[in-house]
Design a protein around this nucleic acid. Structure first.
Lengths: 181, 181
DNA sequence: AAACATATGTTGATTAATCAATAAGTATAT
DNA sequence: ATATACTTATTGATTAATCAACATATGTTT
């Protein structure tokens, strides 16, 4: 694993943080590269060293979160649904501002689809329609059902500004998953 | 005025912040350059590009505050003592952690002397022993008296963790200065 | 349509920071 | 006395960021 020069890490971190901060203030279409540059305190050219444009930046930001969730998923694939879900919900809680911003923004459908695709991938690996309670149900249907339900609840939790703790969210989701899977 | 490259500013800022943070955790003598480097997320060599050693770093940090106070002094030299003191006390409040750290640390006498020297310089420019209530008093005596009193109260305020607001502090000091000068 | 202002994307020379390595000093343990 | 570990300070080659400038695109105004 090649070690990344710290300057690269610092610049990227600054740029990402700047975009998030700016997105709480105005719409992505109204944010200029110069805005990001000023906020991040990096040269405009530096942004182009790392990203194609602001959309690429946002895309990568979202991708990072998805990858991080994927890692968490791999690390917890031996757990019961409730416990695994707790790990996820903790992550959602830690990154609350990012997720709520993404869901609230004009680009919400794009983000929502990315999140849903992630969930579909993960559930597809975990579900078994050959035995047990889901015997006879089509895999695609079950996967879609479950992922959509999950995404819907999580989104609701964010858009209602955490009506209860992430632990309770995990319990509720876990119980519903156990019942269905 | 030559514009300073932003990389220099960023590195210095990070280094200074790191030192301050570390000084809340341990004594300056127990802080290594590597500690500062890690905390600031800069290369150890970078610190040496800007400072001779950690003592030089601290020295410059203190000097910056003194210079900033000097600027404030110049900007408020036309005000009444109470108003001018309010400007100072606001600065003390904003930089509370720095000042209290400096006064609490083993290096306190060094800092205290620097602060006192600053006050002596400033009062020397403002006091007039040729007329009014201080006619006949030796200038050096009056300057020393006033500066020491001022420094003493400010230090007390910090070491007692702000027993009252900086506004009240300014009022009290202002009134005492008016009485004496 | 022309003029103007602003934003995007790129380029080349320069600068500051990085990294790894080295040497020397200091403190501690054997 | 020697060995070890840690810290300080420095060095040289390399890398990433900076800055200023430029070209082009886009949007707005007259």
């Amino acid at each position: 694993m090649t070690k990344v020069d710290r300057r690269v890490l610092k610049s990227r971190e600054a740029i990402k943080k700047a975009l998030i901060a700016l997105m709480t203030e105005k719409h992505l279409d109204d944010i200029t590269i110069q805005d990001i540059s000023d906020r991040a305190n990096v040269n405009r050219g530096t942004i182009y060293l790392h990203y194609l444009d602001k959309y690429d930046l946002l895309d990568k930001l979202i991708e990072e979160h998805m990858n991080r969730l994927r890692e968490l998923c791999e690390a917890s694939c031996r757990l019961e649904w409730t416990e695994a879900t707790l790990v996820f919900c903790e992550y959602f809680d830690q990154h609350y501002s990012f997720f709520s911003l993404m869901l609230a923004s004009k680009g919400a459908p794009y983000f929502r689809n990315r999140f849903l695709d992630f969930l579909i991938d993960e559930f597809r690996c975990e579900l078994d329609v050959t035995r047990g309670k889901n015997q006879g149900i089509k895999e695609d249907v079950l996967v879609r059902f479950t992922a959509s339900a999950y995404a819907g609840v999580v989104e609701w939790w964010f858009m209602n500004e955490k009506p209860f703790s992430y632990r309770e969210l995990a319990e509720q989701l876990g119980a519903l998953l156990e019942r269905n899977l």
